[in-house]
Design a protein around this nucleic acid. Structure first.
Length: 819
DNA sequence: TCCAACTCATTTTTT
DNA sequence: ATGAGTTGGA
């Protein structure tokens, strides 16, 4: 298409091929017959129904490699779509391993990234510029919030959150305000206001030269439909389209794929052929040169967990209807988990009635029992997880091979607290996003202000950050002036003297204008000239310095502001890193990457730590040992799901996804009480627990144990006593460093136990410990320091306690004293 | 315009 | 419990 011509030779630098042998023989090595079929089948449409752990990534990457090696496709003719950037990165890496350099020209990306690339090229076709901004959900919420206020829509029960989610749902169905209005009941004033909001929101986006996440897909579809000749460019280019996690595509994504796989020229009208002559084609499907791209989709309806955001399971269940003559390949053999884990997963998922029966199986044997545990509180539960992690570690499983899953992000807090205390290295995947921090958003808004001056939201965000004495009154004055003069908010700043504001504020505005202009000159050189790779990082620093942003933070006495400076430094480092990876990347590219890449995506970082994440984030990953925590009613299934059609079933699939991530060991745990909104509520075991066949599950401490024997006593008094009833009969499983809890919490009661984690963490300051020192620990008694590792606040003492054996303690906060 | 004290809602999942 | 948002006084 518009970029470099296709290379003439594919993978020219790969080793010589053996004559006679299938060029892809090595690609088929070790595959079962179904997998082979999935790699080698050639046709218009292929659906690979891939159960969890059935080697689908392997199949997909080999299929791509085989297309390339057989010279059936140039790399640039391949478009592979994944759901996350992480998955895209992994796939690229694995294809690279198979075909080397040839992997370069391929598009392996998420739906959103692919659409950004297309929109960048075509934005001018329909009233946007190349420099468009991408609004993440926070940005669009902020915009909607302003509009809700302006339209006084809360009077009609239209909160920003509700409005945002409705608009998003509609966009995923490819509706716009107009088409929605046609079907809506417009005699309802609330509906009228909503339509008005929707239209206003869209107008504002256009005016700001911005797309929200949903628009990236939806507007690309719109573009293809409105400009068939543009669509044809991409149809001609992408001859092989592969889509992973097809069960999680929504209607807009489905439509996008559909548009891309249509026959070339199928929208009629004149089309410029590659030879430059005009072609009118009535029925292009007969012409093999015009055939639509071949489509491969991979999915598993049992792992559909995004219906809540518009994923339509029918996209996969009706694939054969959509693509007549499609080939379907089933992959049921599982190469990941033990049979016990798979049997549990099969049993659970079989409770979903409207599914095609599918049973995962393996030939690696039964494996370990699944372990269950019931804690008194979420902290108790977390302690169990932390202890067990250490046991597994001693048994030779690397931290990086263990993961803890939970339903909601808020559950991570208790786990974190205990992990810190127990000195278990962990990494939270996803969670509170780096890029959602206020200071990061501010910094990015500065960059947006430079790269996309039409984006008034960004301007409004930074205009008084740091404080310049510019409040609502002044902002409105600027806005009015801009409107009168028919210029952008950004350009209005250049004429601060024309605004009727005080001299001090005038000066502040003029200064901001000058800083933005300077950064602009640095990052966006005028005439086609390329900015140096360092421009983004330098421009960012310039903005932060000269705007006074850094100074304001440094002058502050708020301790948090110190951390903010560090975060900004890290953002600058990210910009440098970006320049290294994308020497020609502009500030616009940088912003797009930042908007689309969540920090859950930097996968390699998890080395050496236990991974903590939500069940949703866990999809597509696998670990030797998996802890599914908080398996309680109202959590999984989540209470909100009860009201939604298909909700409980989706929750079950989510649980299923969690279970099937485990290779060797699976733990399910819950707590009897859980603190929520600062209140302690009693939790009930999840219905899904009963769906796991009893013979597969060993309770270390069952919900019954906790209820009938627990009373007001804590686990400390009656559990882990080794031979106690209902307790698997062995304290040994906890390893030699098992802490006899009776000693640890002599006067423990439930209240104390539940709140064992003090609100304020104690601080030993910089207590110096050296090997040989003797210490006393509040819970563990006396012991001797073997070694000290780590630095600063993270120094860890390895202590051999007289009574309870070796333990690792975080020196800064452990309840210890030097003797 | 800024800041402190106060109220209130938040907790489903993500590009 | 916590954070965001609002209100009223300086």
């Amino acid at each position: 298409m518009t970029d470099a011509p296709f290379p003439l030779i594919v993978g020219g630098d790969r080793g010589p091929q053996q004559a006679g042998a299938r060029p892809d023989e090595d690609l088929l090595a070790g595959l079962n017959p179904q997998q082979r079929e999935a790699v080698t089948y050639r046709g218009q449409a292929l659906l690979i129904v891939a159960g969890a752990g059935s080697g689908k990534t392997s199949v997909l990457t080999r299929r791509i490699a085989s297309l390339l090696r057989g010279r059936e496709a140039w790399p640039s003719q391949i478009l592979a779509i994944t759901f996350t950037n992480k998955a895209a990165g992994e796939m690229r890496e694995r294809v690279e391993q198979l075909v080397g350099e040839a992997a370069r020209g391929m598009w392996i990306s998420t739906f959103h990234s692919a659409c950004v690339r297309i929109l960048r090229r075509e934005a001018e076709q329909f009233g946007f510029t190349k420099a468009f901004t991408i609004y993440d959900s926070g940005d669009s919420r902020a915009l909607i919030k302003r509009l809700v206020k302006e339209h006084e829509a809360d009077a009609y029960g239209l909160t920003p959150a509700a409005t945002q989610s409705r608009i998003s749902k509609l966009k995923n169905e490819l509706s716009d305000a107009e088409s929605y209005a046609r079907s809506a009941n417009m005699s309802d004033p609330a509906e009228r206001v909503f339509v008005e909001l929707f239209a206003a929101y869209q107008r504002e986006l256009q005016r700001a030269n911005a797309f929200d996440f949903d628009d990236l897909i939806g507007q690309t579809v719109f573009l293809f439909r409105a400009f068939p000749h543009v669509a044809d460019v991409y149809r001609r280019r992408f001859r092989h389209i592969l889509v992973d996690e097809y069960q999680d595509t929504n209607h807009a994504q489905y439509a996008l794929i559909h548009e891309l796989t249509r026959p070339i020229g199928s929208d009629a009208g004149p089309i410029a052929s590659s030879g430059g002559m005009m072609i009118f084609d009535a029925d292009p499907t007969d012409d093999p040169d015009k055939a639509g791209a071949s489509l491969t989709v991979v999915g598993d309806s049992d792992q559909s967990i995004y219906a809540f955001r518009g994923a339509d399971i029918r996209n996969i269940s009706e694939f054969e209807r959509d693509y007549p003559g499609a080939k379907v390949v089933l992959l049921e053999q599982n190469y990941r988990s033990t049979q016990n884990i798979l049997s549990a997963a099969n049993a659970v998922i079989s409770n979903n009635f409207d599914r095609k029966d599918k049973k995962l199986w393996t030939d690696v044997g039964a494996g370990e029992q699944i372990v269950g545990f019931t804690g008194y509180s979420q902290h108790d539960e977390a302690q169990f997880v932390a202890d067990e992690v250490e046991v597994l570690r001693k048994a030779g499983i690397d931290y990086a091979q263990m993961a803890v899953f939970y339903r909601t992000n808020s559950q991570s807090r208790a786990l974190e607290e205990i992990f810190i205390r127990s000195a278990v290295p962990y990494k939270i995947m996803g969670g509170t996003k780096f890029y959602e921090r206020a200071e990061i958003k501010d910094a990015l808004a500065y960059l947006v202000a430079v790269s996309n001056p039409a984006d008034e939201m960004a301007m409004r965000r930074i205009i008084n950050r740091p404080r310049r004495g510019i409040g609502d009154v002044t902002i409105e004055a600027i806005s009015r002036y801009a409107q009168e003069e028919q210029i952008t908010f950004r350009d209005a700043l250049a004429n601060s003297s024309a605004l009727s504001v005080g001299p001090k504020i005038q000066a502040a505005i003029a200064h901001l204008d000058a800083v933005l202009a300077e950064a602009s000159a640095l990052m966006l050189p005028a005439s086609g000239e390329l900015a140096p790779p360092t421009a983004v990082a330098e421009g960012l620093q310039l903005l932060l310095n000269k705007s006074g942003y850094y100074d304001a933070l440094r002058a502050s006495k708020d301790a948090q502001d110190e951390a903010r400076i560090e975060n900004l430094d890290e953002l600058v480092a990210v910009a440098r890193e970006f320049a290294r990876n994308n020497p020609e990347g502009t500030v616009i590219d940088f912003l797009a990457e930042v908007a689309l890449v969540s920090d859950a995506d930097d996968l390699e970082d998890a080395s050496g730590s236990v991974s903590l994440m939500t069940l949703h984030t866990a999809k597509g990953l696998e670990y030797d040992a998996v802890f599914v925590t908080g398996v309680e009613e109202d959590l999984i299934p989540h209470r909100i799901s009860a009201g939604e059609p298909g909700g409980p079933q989706e929750e079950r699939r989510l649980f299923y996804v969690g279970i099937t991530r485990a290779r060797k060991r699976l733990y399910v745990s819950l707590a009897m009480t859980r603190a929520q909104f600062g209140e302690v509520t009693v939790a009930m075991p999840s219905r899904f627990l009963q769906e796991i066949p009893a013979e597969l599950l060993t309770w270390r401490q069952s919900p019954g144990d906790v209820n009938s024997r627990g009373g007001t006593q804590s686990r400390a008094l009656n559990a882990r006593r080794g031979s106690g009833s209902g307790y698997g009969g062995s304290g040994k499983r906890y390893g030699d460093d098992l802490v006899p809890l009776a000693k640890r919490e002599p006067s423990g009661n439930l209240e104390r136990f539940a709140n064992r984690i003090p609100a304020k963490v104690r601080d030993n300051g910089d207590m110096q410990l050296a090997p040989g020192d003797r210490i006393r620990h509040d819970d563990f008694g006396e012991g001797r320091v073997d070694a000290v590792t780590g630095e600063g606040a993270k120094r860890v003492a390895h202590v051999r306690f007289d009574k309870v054996g070796p333990k690792k303690l975080l020196i800064k906060i452990a309840p210890i004293e030097k003797l």
